[in-house]
Design a protein around this nucleic acid. Structure first.
Length: 613
DNA sequence: CTAGGGTTAG
Protein backbone atom coordinates (compact mmCIF):
# COMPACT_ATOMS: atom_id res chain seq x y z
CA UNK A 1 0.00 0.00 0.00
CA UNK A 2 1.34 3.38 -0.98
CA UNK A 3 0.15 5.02 2.20
CA UNK A 4 2.73 7.70 2.30
CA UNK A 5 2.15 8.74 -1.24
CA UNK A 6 -1.25 10.17 -0.49
CA UNK A 7 -0.99 13.94 -0.52
CA UNK A 8 -1.70 16.11 2.45
CA UNK A 9 -0.57 13.93 5.30
CA UNK A 10 2.52 12.01 4.33
CA UNK A 11 4.77 14.18 6.43
CA UNK A 12 2.48 14.64 9.38
CA UNK A 13 4.25 13.61 12.58
CA UNK A 14 1.00 12.48 14.14
CA UNK A 15 1.09 9.50 11.85
CA UNK A 16 3.85 8.03 13.90
CA UNK A 17 2.00 8.40 17.15
CA UNK A 18 -0.06 5.36 16.57
CA UNK A 19 -3.54 4.62 17.79
CA UNK A 20 -3.25 6.59 20.99
CA UNK A 21 -3.23 9.80 19.02
CA UNK A 22 -6.90 9.48 18.30
CA UNK A 23 -8.03 11.03 21.52
CA UNK A 24 -8.12 14.57 20.27
CA UNK A 25 -9.33 17.32 22.43
CA UNK A 26 -11.74 19.95 21.12
CA UNK A 27 -9.06 22.57 21.71
CA UNK A 28 -6.63 21.58 19.02
CA UNK A 29 -9.14 20.22 16.62
CA UNK A 30 -11.80 22.14 14.74
CA UNK A 31 -13.57 19.13 13.30
CA UNK A 32 -15.48 16.28 14.90
CA UNK A 33 -12.93 14.36 16.87
CA UNK A 34 -14.90 11.47 18.18
CA UNK A 35 -13.86 8.88 15.63
CA UNK A 36 -14.02 5.50 17.20
CA UNK A 37 -15.90 3.46 14.72
CA UNK A 38 -16.23 2.91 11.04
CA UNK A 39 -19.72 4.39 11.19
CA UNK A 40 -18.38 7.65 12.49
CA UNK A 41 -15.87 7.90 9.68
CA UNK A 42 -18.55 7.19 7.16
CA UNK A 43 -20.93 9.74 8.58
CA UNK A 44 -18.17 12.29 8.48
CA UNK A 45 -17.22 11.47 4.91
CA UNK A 46 -20.79 11.67 3.69
CA UNK A 47 -21.16 15.24 4.84
CA UNK A 48 -17.62 16.33 4.05
CA UNK A 49 -17.35 19.23 1.62
CA UNK A 50 -13.88 20.40 2.37
CA UNK A 51 -10.72 19.06 0.84
CA UNK A 52 -8.44 19.63 3.80
CA UNK A 53 -10.94 18.01 6.10
CA UNK A 54 -11.23 15.07 3.73
CA UNK A 55 -7.48 14.63 3.74
CA UNK A 56 -7.38 14.73 7.52
CA UNK A 57 -10.13 12.16 7.74
CA UNK A 58 -8.26 10.07 5.21
CA UNK A 59 -5.24 10.18 7.51
CA UNK A 60 -7.26 9.04 10.47
CA UNK A 61 -8.83 6.20 8.55
CA UNK A 62 -5.35 5.16 7.64
CA UNK A 63 -4.24 5.26 11.24
CA UNK A 64 -7.11 3.12 12.27
CA UNK A 65 -6.09 0.61 9.69
CA UNK A 66 -9.47 0.98 8.01
CA UNK A 67 -8.18 1.88 4.58
CA UNK A 68 -8.15 -1.77 3.62
CA UNK A 69 -11.81 -1.92 4.41
CA UNK A 70 -13.55 -1.68 1.06
CA UNK A 71 -16.71 -0.15 2.47
CA UNK A 72 -14.87 2.68 4.21
CA UNK A 73 -12.54 3.29 1.29
CA UNK A 74 -15.51 3.53 -1.06
CA UNK A 75 -16.90 6.35 1.02
CA UNK A 76 -13.58 8.07 0.87
CA UNK A 77 -13.50 7.69 -2.91
CA UNK A 78 -16.95 9.23 -3.09
CA UNK A 79 -15.82 12.07 -0.94
CA UNK A 80 -12.92 12.84 -3.28
CA UNK A 81 -15.21 12.46 -6.28
CA UNK A 82 -17.62 14.97 -4.77
CA UNK A 83 -14.74 17.37 -4.32
CA UNK A 84 -13.71 16.79 -7.95
CA UNK A 85 -10.36 15.34 -6.92
CA UNK A 86 -9.95 12.72 -9.61
CA UNK A 87 -6.27 12.14 -8.86
CA UNK A 88 -6.86 11.41 -5.19
CA UNK A 89 -9.84 9.22 -5.93
CA UNK A 90 -7.88 7.20 -8.44
CA UNK A 91 -4.86 6.81 -6.21
CA UNK A 92 -7.00 5.58 -3.39
CA UNK A 93 -8.79 3.19 -5.71
CA UNK A 94 -5.52 1.94 -7.11
CA UNK A 95 -4.26 1.10 -3.65
CA UNK A 96 -7.34 -0.83 -2.62
CA UNK A 97 -6.63 -4.51 -2.08
CA UNK A 98 -10.17 -5.54 -2.96
CA UNK A 99 -12.10 -2.96 -4.92
CA UNK A 100 -15.70 -4.02 -5.41
CA UNK A 101 -18.35 -2.97 -7.90
CA UNK A 102 -19.12 0.14 -5.86
CA UNK A 103 -15.49 1.22 -5.93
CA UNK A 104 -15.39 0.91 -9.70
CA UNK A 105 -18.72 2.59 -10.22
CA UNK A 106 -17.92 5.46 -7.89
CA UNK A 107 -14.68 6.13 -9.69
CA UNK A 108 -16.38 5.92 -13.07
CA UNK A 109 -19.13 8.33 -12.10
CA UNK A 110 -16.48 10.68 -10.75
CA UNK A 111 -14.79 10.79 -14.12
CA UNK A 112 -18.07 11.38 -15.93
CA UNK A 113 -18.97 14.21 -13.59
CA UNK A 114 -15.62 15.82 -14.24
CA UNK A 115 -16.15 15.57 -17.98
CA UNK A 116 -13.61 12.77 -18.40
CA UNK A 117 -15.90 10.22 -19.94
CA UNK A 118 -13.12 8.64 -21.93
CA UNK A 119 -11.35 7.66 -18.70
CA UNK A 120 -14.63 6.40 -17.28
CA UNK A 121 -14.92 3.98 -20.17
CA UNK A 122 -11.31 2.96 -19.68
CA UNK A 123 -12.05 2.10 -16.04
CA UNK A 124 -15.06 0.13 -17.21
CA UNK A 125 -12.93 -1.88 -19.62
CA UNK A 126 -10.35 -2.49 -16.92
CA UNK A 127 -13.12 -3.73 -14.67
CA UNK A 128 -14.34 -6.16 -17.33
CA UNK A 129 -10.85 -7.68 -17.48
CA UNK A 130 -11.06 -8.59 -13.80
CA UNK A 131 -13.49 -10.64 -11.80
CA UNK A 132 -15.71 -7.91 -10.40
CA UNK A 133 -19.07 -7.93 -12.16
CA UNK A 134 -20.84 -4.72 -13.17
CA UNK A 135 -24.29 -3.97 -11.79
CA UNK A 136 -27.09 -1.68 -12.97
CA UNK A 137 -25.36 1.34 -11.46
CA UNK A 138 -22.20 0.57 -13.40
CA UNK A 139 -24.07 0.21 -16.66
CA UNK A 140 -26.02 3.41 -16.14
CA UNK A 141 -22.75 5.24 -15.57
CA UNK A 142 -20.99 3.67 -18.55
CA UNK A 143 -23.92 4.46 -20.83
CA UNK A 144 -23.91 7.99 -19.50
CA UNK A 145 -20.26 8.32 -20.50
CA UNK A 146 -21.19 7.24 -24.03
CA UNK A 147 -23.89 9.89 -24.26
CA UNK A 148 -21.49 12.57 -23.14
CA UNK A 149 -19.11 11.48 -25.88
CA UNK A 150 -21.90 10.79 -28.37
CA UNK A 151 -20.08 7.51 -28.91
CA UNK A 152 -22.67 5.36 -30.63
CA UNK A 153 -20.39 2.42 -31.28
CA UNK A 154 -19.39 1.93 -27.66
CA UNK A 155 -22.93 2.74 -26.61
CA UNK A 156 -24.26 -0.12 -28.68
CA UNK A 157 -21.66 -2.49 -27.30
CA UNK A 158 -22.61 -1.59 -23.77
CA UNK A 159 -26.28 -1.97 -24.67
CA UNK A 160 -25.55 -5.53 -25.76
CA UNK A 161 -23.71 -6.04 -22.51
CA UNK A 162 -26.72 -4.72 -20.60
CA UNK A 163 -28.88 -7.33 -22.26
CA UNK A 164 -26.53 -10.18 -21.56
CA UNK A 165 -26.49 -9.20 -17.91
CA UNK A 166 -30.27 -9.01 -17.84
CA UNK A 167 -30.58 -5.33 -17.00
CA UNK A 168 -32.72 -4.50 -20.02
CA UNK A 169 -35.73 -3.94 -17.77
CA UNK A 170 -34.02 -1.64 -15.35
CA UNK A 171 -35.63 1.78 -15.28
CA UNK A 172 -32.49 3.81 -14.80
CA UNK A 173 -30.36 1.83 -17.24
CA UNK A 174 -33.05 2.18 -19.89
CA UNK A 175 -33.47 5.88 -19.27
CA UNK A 176 -29.78 6.37 -19.79
CA UNK A 177 -29.90 4.24 -22.95
CA UNK A 178 -32.73 6.38 -24.31
CA UNK A 179 -30.67 9.45 -23.53
CA UNK A 180 -27.55 7.96 -25.10
CA UNK A 181 -29.28 7.11 -28.37
CA UNK A 182 -30.82 10.57 -28.38
CA UNK A 183 -27.44 12.24 -27.97
CA UNK A 184 -26.13 10.08 -30.81
CA UNK A 185 -28.97 11.32 -33.03
CA UNK A 186 -30.54 7.88 -33.18
CA UNK A 187 -34.10 8.76 -32.26
CA UNK A 188 -35.43 5.50 -33.70
CA UNK A 189 -33.22 3.40 -31.44
CA UNK A 190 -34.08 5.61 -28.47
CA UNK A 191 -37.73 5.09 -29.21
CA UNK A 192 -37.25 1.34 -29.40
CA UNK A 193 -35.72 1.20 -25.94
CA UNK A 194 -38.40 3.54 -24.64
CA UNK A 195 -41.24 1.41 -26.03
CA UNK A 196 -39.70 -1.72 -24.57
CA UNK A 197 -39.80 -0.34 -21.05
CA UNK A 198 -42.36 -1.88 -18.79
CA UNK A 199 -42.39 0.91 -16.31
CA UNK A 200 -41.57 4.49 -17.03
CA UNK A 201 -41.23 7.56 -14.92
CA UNK A 202 -40.81 11.25 -15.44
CA UNK A 203 -37.09 10.80 -16.12
CA UNK A 204 -37.54 8.22 -18.87
CA UNK A 205 -40.25 10.35 -20.46
CA UNK A 206 -37.96 13.36 -20.28
CA UNK A 207 -35.14 11.43 -21.93
CA UNK A 208 -37.42 10.46 -24.77
CA UNK A 209 -38.91 13.93 -25.19
CA UNK A 210 -35.44 15.43 -25.17
CA UNK A 211 -34.20 12.93 -27.73
CA UNK A 212 -36.96 14.12 -30.08
CA UNK A 213 -36.64 17.82 -29.27
CA UNK A 214 -32.89 17.83 -29.88
CA UNK A 215 -33.15 16.03 -33.19
CA UNK A 216 -35.59 18.21 -35.03
CA UNK A 217 -38.62 16.14 -34.14
CA UNK A 218 -40.50 18.71 -32.16
CA UNK A 219 -43.93 17.44 -33.10
CA UNK A 220 -43.09 14.02 -31.76
CA UNK A 221 -41.77 15.64 -28.58
CA UNK A 222 -45.00 17.57 -28.09
CA UNK A 223 -47.03 14.42 -28.81
CA UNK A 224 -45.13 12.56 -26.10
CA UNK A 225 -45.66 15.42 -23.69
CA UNK A 226 -49.37 15.33 -24.37
CA UNK A 227 -49.38 11.58 -23.77
CA UNK A 228 -47.45 11.99 -20.53
CA UNK A 229 -49.93 14.56 -19.25
CA UNK A 230 -52.82 12.40 -20.27
CA UNK A 231 -51.47 9.49 -18.23
CA UNK A 232 -51.27 11.92 -15.29
CA UNK A 233 -49.13 9.67 -13.12
CA UNK A 234 -46.64 12.34 -12.41
CA UNK A 235 -46.33 16.07 -12.88
CA UNK A 236 -43.85 17.38 -15.39
CA UNK A 237 -40.77 18.80 -13.69
CA UNK A 238 -38.32 21.51 -14.72
CA UNK A 239 -36.26 19.13 -16.85
CA UNK A 240 -39.20 18.00 -18.90
CA UNK A 241 -40.63 21.49 -19.26
CA UNK A 242 -37.31 22.86 -20.48
CA UNK A 243 -37.23 20.24 -23.22
CA UNK A 244 -40.83 20.83 -24.21
CA UNK A 245 -40.16 24.56 -24.49
CA UNK A 246 -37.19 23.77 -26.73
CA UNK A 247 -39.49 21.73 -28.95
CA UNK A 248 -41.94 24.65 -29.17
CA UNK A 249 -39.07 26.99 -29.99
CA UNK A 250 -37.81 24.80 -32.79
CA UNK A 251 -41.26 24.54 -34.27
CA UNK A 252 -42.05 28.21 -33.89
CA UNK A 253 -45.13 27.24 -31.90
CA UNK A 254 -45.73 30.41 -29.98
CA UNK A 255 -49.10 29.35 -28.62
CA UNK A 256 -47.84 25.96 -27.39
CA UNK A 257 -44.85 27.79 -25.97
CA UNK A 258 -47.10 30.13 -24.04
CA UNK A 259 -49.17 27.22 -22.78
CA UNK A 260 -46.01 25.49 -21.58
CA UNK A 261 -44.92 28.72 -19.95
CA UNK A 262 -48.22 28.57 -18.09
CA UNK A 263 -47.40 25.06 -16.90
CA UNK A 264 -43.99 26.30 -15.75
CA UNK A 265 -45.65 28.94 -13.58
CA UNK A 266 -48.33 26.58 -12.29
CA UNK A 267 -45.79 24.02 -11.18
CA UNK A 268 -43.55 26.63 -9.63
CA UNK A 269 -40.54 26.25 -11.92
CA UNK A 270 -40.36 29.84 -13.07
CA UNK A 271 -37.38 30.57 -10.87
CA UNK A 272 -35.33 27.85 -12.53
CA UNK A 273 -32.42 29.19 -14.54
CA UNK A 274 -32.47 26.68 -17.34
CA UNK A 275 -36.23 26.86 -17.79
CA UNK A 276 -35.97 30.64 -17.97
CA UNK A 277 -33.24 30.31 -20.59
CA UNK A 278 -35.36 27.97 -22.65
CA UNK A 279 -38.23 30.45 -22.46
CA UNK A 280 -36.03 33.38 -23.47
CA UNK A 281 -34.87 31.32 -26.43
CA UNK A 282 -38.38 30.21 -27.32
CA UNK A 283 -39.85 33.71 -27.35
CA UNK A 284 -36.95 34.98 -29.43
CA UNK A 285 -37.29 32.18 -31.96
CA UNK A 286 -41.01 32.87 -32.13
CA UNK A 287 -40.34 36.50 -32.96
CA UNK A 288 -41.18 37.99 -29.55
CA UNK A 289 -37.87 39.46 -28.51
CA UNK A 290 -39.65 41.81 -26.11
CA UNK A 291 -40.99 38.86 -24.13
CA UNK A 292 -37.49 37.39 -24.07
CA UNK A 293 -36.15 40.61 -22.67
CA UNK A 294 -38.90 40.93 -20.09
CA UNK A 295 -38.42 37.36 -19.00
CA UNK A 296 -34.66 37.68 -18.82
CA UNK A 297 -34.89 40.81 -16.70
CA UNK A 298 -36.99 38.91 -14.19
CA UNK A 299 -34.40 36.21 -13.58
CA UNK A 300 -33.07 37.14 -10.13
CA UNK A 301 -29.40 36.27 -10.46
CA UNK A 302 -28.92 35.13 -14.01
CA UNK A 303 -26.07 32.69 -14.49
CA UNK A 304 -24.09 32.30 -17.66
CA UNK A 305 -26.88 30.27 -19.25
CA UNK A 306 -29.69 32.87 -19.23
CA UNK A 307 -27.15 35.52 -20.23
CA UNK A 308 -26.05 33.43 -23.17
CA UNK A 309 -29.64 32.77 -24.24
CA UNK A 310 -30.41 36.47 -24.16
CA UNK A 311 -27.21 37.39 -26.02
CA UNK A 312 -28.13 34.90 -28.71
CA UNK A 313 -31.74 36.11 -28.79
CA UNK A 314 -30.72 39.73 -29.30
CA UNK A 315 -28.15 38.72 -31.91
CA UNK A 316 -30.75 36.77 -33.85
CA UNK A 317 -32.90 39.88 -34.06
CA UNK A 318 -30.10 42.04 -35.35
CA UNK A 319 -29.66 43.79 -32.01
CA UNK A 320 -25.91 43.27 -31.92
CA UNK A 321 -25.29 46.28 -29.71
CA UNK A 322 -27.64 44.88 -27.08
CA UNK A 323 -25.85 41.52 -27.23
CA UNK A 324 -22.54 43.20 -26.58
CA UNK A 325 -23.97 45.30 -23.76
CA UNK A 326 -25.31 42.15 -22.13
CA UNK A 327 -21.94 40.51 -22.49
CA UNK A 328 -20.16 43.40 -20.83
CA UNK A 329 -22.79 43.51 -18.08
CA UNK A 330 -22.18 39.84 -17.47
CA UNK A 331 -18.43 40.33 -17.20
CA UNK A 332 -18.95 43.28 -14.86
CA UNK A 333 -20.98 40.99 -12.64
CA UNK A 334 -18.07 38.54 -12.62
CA UNK A 335 -20.00 35.82 -14.36
CA UNK A 336 -17.62 33.67 -16.37
CA UNK A 337 -18.56 33.28 -20.04
CA UNK A 338 -18.18 29.88 -21.67
CA UNK A 339 -17.54 28.71 -25.19
CA UNK A 340 -21.18 28.99 -26.19
CA UNK A 341 -21.39 32.55 -24.88
CA UNK A 342 -18.71 33.47 -27.38
CA UNK A 343 -20.51 31.69 -30.17
CA UNK A 344 -23.45 33.96 -29.32
CA UNK A 345 -21.34 37.10 -29.18
CA UNK A 346 -19.60 36.33 -32.48
CA UNK A 347 -22.88 35.38 -34.06
CA UNK A 348 -24.40 38.67 -32.90
CA UNK A 349 -21.47 40.64 -34.33
CA UNK A 350 -21.82 38.74 -37.57
CA UNK A 351 -25.50 39.51 -37.90
CA UNK A 352 -25.16 43.20 -37.07
CA UNK A 353 -22.11 43.89 -39.21
CA UNK A 354 -19.87 44.53 -36.20
CA UNK A 355 -16.88 42.87 -37.82
CA UNK A 356 -14.06 44.65 -36.06
CA UNK A 357 -15.73 44.19 -32.70
CA UNK A 358 -16.18 40.53 -33.51
CA UNK A 359 -12.52 40.07 -34.34
CA UNK A 360 -11.59 41.85 -31.14
CA UNK A 361 -13.80 39.47 -29.14
CA UNK A 362 -12.23 36.47 -30.84
CA UNK A 363 -8.80 37.75 -29.85
CA UNK A 364 -9.86 38.41 -26.29
CA UNK A 365 -11.15 34.90 -25.74
CA UNK A 366 -8.01 33.19 -24.58
CA UNK A 367 -6.25 36.38 -23.56
CA UNK A 368 -8.90 37.73 -21.20
CA UNK A 369 -11.17 34.79 -20.50
CA UNK A 370 -9.01 31.72 -20.75
CA UNK A 371 -11.17 30.05 -23.38
CA UNK A 372 -9.35 28.60 -26.34
CA UNK A 373 -11.33 29.29 -29.53
CA UNK A 374 -12.62 26.15 -31.17
CA UNK A 375 -13.81 25.35 -34.66
CA UNK A 376 -17.32 26.62 -33.87
CA UNK A 377 -15.91 30.05 -33.07
CA UNK A 378 -13.82 30.19 -36.22
CA UNK A 379 -16.88 29.16 -38.19
CA UNK A 380 -18.76 32.17 -36.80
CA UNK A 381 -15.89 34.43 -37.76
CA UNK A 382 -15.68 32.96 -41.26
CA UNK A 383 -19.39 33.66 -41.54
CA UNK A 384 -18.91 37.18 -40.25
CA UNK A 385 -16.08 38.00 -42.66
CA UNK A 386 -17.88 36.30 -45.50
CA UNK A 387 -21.11 38.20 -45.05
CA UNK A 388 -19.40 41.58 -45.26
CA UNK A 389 -17.54 40.53 -48.36
CA UNK A 390 -14.13 40.04 -46.77
CA UNK A 391 -13.94 36.75 -48.59
CA UNK A 392 -10.18 36.52 -48.86
CA UNK A 393 -9.73 36.79 -45.12
CA UNK A 394 -12.58 34.36 -44.59
CA UNK A 395 -10.94 31.90 -46.96
CA UNK A 396 -7.55 32.18 -45.28
CA UNK A 397 -9.13 31.64 -41.88
CA UNK A 398 -11.13 28.66 -43.13
CA UNK A 399 -8.01 27.04 -44.52
CA UNK A 400 -6.14 27.41 -41.26
CA UNK A 401 -8.97 26.12 -39.06
CA UNK A 402 -8.66 22.59 -37.81
CA UNK A 403 -11.95 20.73 -38.13
CA UNK A 404 -13.40 17.26 -38.00
CA UNK A 405 -15.67 16.04 -40.76
CA UNK A 406 -18.91 17.53 -39.40
CA UNK A 407 -17.38 20.86 -38.53
CA UNK A 408 -15.76 20.92 -41.95
CA UNK A 409 -19.15 20.61 -43.58
CA UNK A 410 -20.42 23.63 -41.65
CA UNK A 411 -17.23 25.60 -42.23
CA UNK A 412 -17.03 25.11 -45.98
CA UNK A 413 -20.77 25.40 -46.38
CA UNK A 414 -20.61 28.77 -44.65
CA UNK A 415 -17.84 29.95 -46.91
CA UNK A 416 -19.67 28.61 -49.94
CA UNK A 417 -22.81 30.60 -49.15
CA UNK A 418 -20.80 33.74 -48.56
CA UNK A 419 -18.82 33.43 -51.76
CA UNK A 420 -21.97 32.81 -53.74
CA UNK A 421 -23.56 35.84 -52.16
CA UNK A 422 -20.64 38.03 -53.18
CA UNK A 423 -20.07 36.39 -56.52
CA UNK A 424 -16.63 34.99 -55.71
CA UNK A 425 -16.76 32.02 -58.01
CA UNK A 426 -13.24 30.75 -57.43
CA UNK A 427 -13.71 30.51 -53.67
CA UNK A 428 -17.16 28.98 -54.17
CA UNK A 429 -15.54 26.32 -56.34
CA UNK A 430 -12.92 25.53 -53.72
CA UNK A 431 -15.48 25.38 -50.93
CA UNK A 432 -17.76 23.09 -52.94
CA UNK A 433 -14.84 20.85 -53.73
CA UNK A 434 -14.09 20.46 -50.05
CA UNK A 435 -17.73 19.80 -49.24
CA UNK A 436 -18.04 17.17 -51.92
CA UNK A 437 -14.78 15.56 -50.82
CA UNK A 438 -15.99 15.33 -47.26
CA UNK A 439 -19.10 13.62 -48.60
CA UNK A 440 -21.41 16.00 -46.76
CA UNK A 441 -24.00 18.40 -48.07
CA UNK A 442 -23.07 17.23 -51.54
CA UNK A 443 -26.30 18.28 -53.20
CA UNK A 444 -26.12 21.69 -51.58
CA UNK A 445 -22.55 22.09 -52.79
CA UNK A 446 -23.51 21.28 -56.37
CA UNK A 447 -26.56 23.50 -56.43
CA UNK A 448 -24.90 26.46 -54.76
CA UNK A 449 -21.82 26.33 -56.93
CA UNK A 450 -23.94 26.00 -60.01
CA UNK A 451 -25.88 29.07 -58.97
CA UNK A 452 -22.69 30.96 -58.28
CA UNK A 453 -21.54 30.19 -61.82
CA UNK A 454 -24.89 31.23 -63.18
CA UNK A 455 -24.79 34.50 -61.25
CA UNK A 456 -21.37 35.22 -62.67
CA UNK A 457 -22.66 34.53 -66.16
CA UNK A 458 -20.64 31.35 -66.55
CA UNK A 459 -23.50 29.38 -67.97
CA UNK A 460 -21.45 26.52 -69.38
CA UNK A 461 -19.98 25.77 -65.99
CA UNK A 462 -23.37 26.00 -64.36
CA UNK A 463 -24.84 23.69 -66.94
CA UNK A 464 -22.06 21.13 -66.73
CA UNK A 465 -22.49 20.90 -62.99
CA UNK A 466 -26.17 20.20 -63.53
CA UNK A 467 -25.28 17.48 -65.96
CA UNK A 468 -22.83 16.06 -63.43
CA UNK A 469 -25.56 15.97 -60.82
CA UNK A 470 -27.88 14.10 -63.11
CA UNK A 471 -25.17 11.66 -64.07
CA UNK A 472 -24.15 10.90 -60.50
CA UNK A 473 -27.72 10.89 -59.26
CA UNK A 474 -27.20 13.66 -56.73
CA UNK A 475 -30.56 15.07 -55.86
CA UNK A 476 -31.36 18.18 -53.91
CA UNK A 477 -34.39 17.66 -51.82
CA UNK A 478 -36.75 20.56 -52.35
CA UNK A 479 -37.35 22.71 -49.33
CA UNK A 480 -40.75 23.70 -48.11
CA UNK A 481 -42.41 26.18 -45.83
CA UNK A 482 -45.52 25.86 -43.85
CA UNK A 483 -47.99 28.05 -42.16
CA UNK A 484 -50.11 26.96 -39.26
CA UNK A 485 -53.61 28.32 -39.13
CA UNK A 486 -55.64 27.04 -36.27
CA UNK A 487 -55.50 23.28 -36.53
CA UNK A 488 -54.35 23.02 -40.10
CA UNK A 489 -50.92 23.21 -41.60
CA UNK A 490 -50.49 24.48 -45.14
CA UNK A 491 -47.30 23.42 -46.86
CA UNK A 492 -45.71 25.31 -49.73
CA UNK A 493 -42.95 24.23 -51.99
CA UNK A 494 -40.50 26.65 -53.49
CA UNK A 495 -41.46 28.38 -56.69
CA UNK A 496 -44.93 26.94 -56.59
CA UNK A 497 -47.40 29.60 -57.64
CA UNK A 498 -49.72 27.11 -59.17
CA UNK A 499 -51.87 26.62 -56.09
CA UNK A 500 -55.56 27.26 -56.02
CA UNK A 501 -55.21 30.95 -55.45
CA UNK A 502 -51.79 31.53 -56.92
CA UNK A 503 -52.69 34.72 -58.74
CA UNK A 504 -54.48 36.17 -55.71
CA UNK A 505 -51.38 35.51 -53.72
CA UNK A 506 -49.12 37.22 -56.19
CA UNK A 507 -51.28 40.31 -56.46
CA UNK A 508 -51.49 40.56 -52.71
CA UNK A 509 -47.73 40.34 -52.47
CA UNK A 510 -47.42 43.24 -54.91
CA UNK A 511 -49.83 45.27 -52.83
CA UNK A 512 -47.86 44.57 -49.68
CA UNK A 513 -44.68 45.48 -51.44
CA UNK A 514 -46.17 48.83 -52.33
CA UNK A 515 -47.18 49.51 -48.74
CA UNK A 516 -43.76 48.59 -47.49
CA UNK A 517 -42.15 50.93 -49.99
CA UNK A 518 -44.33 53.75 -48.71
CA UNK A 519 -42.79 53.15 -45.33
CA UNK A 520 -39.32 53.24 -46.70
CA UNK A 521 -38.48 49.56 -47.01
CA UNK A 522 -36.45 48.97 -50.11
CA UNK A 523 -36.65 45.20 -50.31
CA UNK A 524 -38.84 43.27 -52.63
CA UNK A 525 -41.31 40.57 -51.85
CA UNK A 526 -41.90 39.46 -55.39
CA UNK A 527 -39.95 39.30 -58.57
CA UNK A 528 -36.96 37.38 -57.31
CA UNK A 529 -34.37 36.45 -59.87
CA UNK A 530 -34.81 33.03 -61.34
CA UNK A 531 -31.75 31.51 -62.79
CA UNK A 532 -33.44 28.62 -64.25
CA UNK A 533 -31.15 25.81 -65.09
CA UNK A 534 -33.07 22.99 -63.56
CA UNK A 535 -36.11 22.77 -61.45
CA UNK A 536 -34.18 22.21 -58.23
CA UNK A 537 -32.01 25.22 -58.90
CA UNK A 538 -35.00 27.42 -58.27
CA UNK A 539 -35.22 26.15 -54.79
CA UNK A 540 -31.83 27.46 -53.95
CA UNK A 541 -32.49 30.83 -55.50
CA UNK A 542 -35.97 31.45 -54.31
CA UNK A 543 -35.81 30.00 -50.85
CA UNK A 544 -37.80 32.85 -49.51
CA UNK A 545 -40.34 32.87 -52.22
CA UNK A 546 -42.31 30.23 -50.47
CA UNK A 547 -42.36 32.27 -47.29
CA UNK A 548 -43.99 35.06 -49.13
CA UNK A 549 -46.50 32.70 -50.59
CA UNK A 550 -47.20 31.35 -47.19
CA UNK A 551 -47.50 34.83 -45.85
CA UNK A 552 -49.82 35.90 -48.60
CA UNK A 553 -51.84 32.79 -48.22
CA UNK A 554 -52.24 33.53 -44.59
CA UNK A 555 -53.30 37.08 -45.24
CA UNK A 556 -55.95 36.08 -47.70
CA UNK A 557 -57.54 33.41 -45.63
CA UNK A 558 -57.27 34.35 -42.04
CA UNK A 559 -59.59 36.64 -40.17
CA UNK A 560 -58.09 39.36 -38.03
CA UNK A 561 -56.70 38.42 -34.68
CA UNK A 562 -55.51 34.96 -35.66
CA UNK A 563 -51.83 34.28 -35.34
CA UNK A 564 -50.02 33.54 -38.53
CA UNK A 565 -46.84 31.62 -38.33
CA UNK A 566 -44.39 31.55 -41.13
CA UNK A 567 -41.47 29.29 -40.93
CA UNK A 568 -38.26 28.44 -42.60
CA UNK A 569 -35.12 29.53 -44.22
CA UNK A 570 -34.74 32.87 -42.66
CA UNK A 571 -32.09 34.26 -40.47
CA UNK A 572 -33.31 37.36 -38.79
CA UNK A 573 -31.20 40.39 -39.31
CA UNK A 574 -32.13 43.97 -38.73
CA UNK A 575 -33.71 44.71 -42.07
CA UNK A 576 -35.81 41.60 -42.44
CA UNK A 577 -36.86 41.92 -38.84
CA UNK A 578 -38.06 45.43 -39.64
CA UNK A 579 -39.79 44.25 -42.75
CA UNK A 580 -41.76 41.69 -40.86
CA UNK A 581 -42.57 44.17 -38.16
CA UNK A 582 -44.08 46.39 -40.77
CA UNK A 583 -46.04 43.61 -42.32
CA UNK A 584 -47.21 42.73 -38.88
CA UNK A 585 -48.35 46.30 -38.28
CA UNK A 586 -50.04 46.63 -41.62
CA UNK A 587 -51.92 43.43 -41.20
CA UNK A 588 -52.41 43.69 -37.44
CA UNK A 589 -51.24 40.16 -36.95
CA UNK A 590 -48.46 38.43 -35.06
CA UNK A 591 -45.97 37.04 -37.47
CA UNK A 592 -43.56 34.36 -36.42
CA UNK A 593 -40.70 33.49 -38.67
CA UNK A 594 -38.86 30.28 -38.18
CA UNK A 595 -35.76 28.79 -39.64
CA UNK A 596 -36.23 25.08 -40.02
CA UNK A 597 -33.19 24.05 -41.96
CA UNK A 598 -29.93 23.63 -40.21
CA UNK A 599 -27.66 24.64 -42.99
CA UNK A 600 -27.02 27.62 -45.10
CA UNK A 601 -30.12 29.43 -45.91
CA UNK A 602 -28.56 32.73 -45.15
CA UNK A 603 -29.65 35.95 -46.65
CA UNK A 604 -31.96 34.87 -49.32
CA UNK A 605 -34.12 37.35 -51.09
CA UNK A 606 -35.75 39.57 -48.53
CA UNK A 607 -33.10 39.02 -45.97
CA UNK A 608 -30.11 40.40 -47.82
CA UNK A 609 -27.92 41.97 -45.22
CA UNK A 610 -25.77 43.76 -47.74
CA UNK A 611 -28.47 46.38 -48.16
CA UNK A 612 -28.37 47.08 -44.48
CA UNK A 613 -24.65 47.65 -44.36
C1' DC B 1 -21.74 3.16 -0.26
C1' DT B 2 -22.43 3.53 -6.50
C1' DA B 3 -26.96 5.21 -11.30
C1' DG B 4 -30.66 8.20 -15.31
C1' DG B 5 -33.29 13.59 -17.59
C1' DG B 6 -32.81 20.19 -18.70
C1' DT B 7 -30.29 25.62 -21.62
C1' DT B 8 -27.24 28.35 -25.28
C1' DA B 9 -24.54 27.81 -31.48
C1' DG B 10 -23.50 26.29 -36.46
Amino acid sequence: MGLLSCPGFSSKPSLKLGLKAISFTPKNCSFPYFFHTRTHFIQTLQSCNDYVFATLTHAKILKHGLLNDTFTANHLINCYVRLQKAGQAYQLFDEMPEPNVVSYTSLMSGYVNMGKSQICLWVFREMRKGTVLPNEFTFATAVNACSMLADLKTGKQIHAHVQSFGFQCNLVVCSSLVDMYGKCNEVGLARRVFESMECKNVVSWTSMITACAQNGRGDEALGLFREFNWLAWEYPNQFMLASVITACANLGKLVSGKVTHGAVIRHGHDSNDVVASALVDMYAKCGCILYSDRLFRRVPNPSVIPYTSMIVAAGKHGLGKLSLELFEEMIARRIKPNGVTFVGVLHACSHSGLVDEGLEYLNSMSRKHGIVPEAKHYICVVDMLGRTGRLDEAYQLAKSTEVNNDEGAVLWGTLLSASRLHGRVEIAAEASKRLIESNQQVALAYVTLSNAYALAGQWENAQSLRTDMKRTGVYKEPGCSWVEIKDSTYVFHAGDVSGERGSDILSLLRELEGKMKERGYIGRLTGLVFIDVEEEAKEEMVGLHSEKLALAFGLINIPKGVTIRIMKNLRMCRDCHEAFKWISEITERDIVVRDVNRFHHFDKGLCTCRDFW
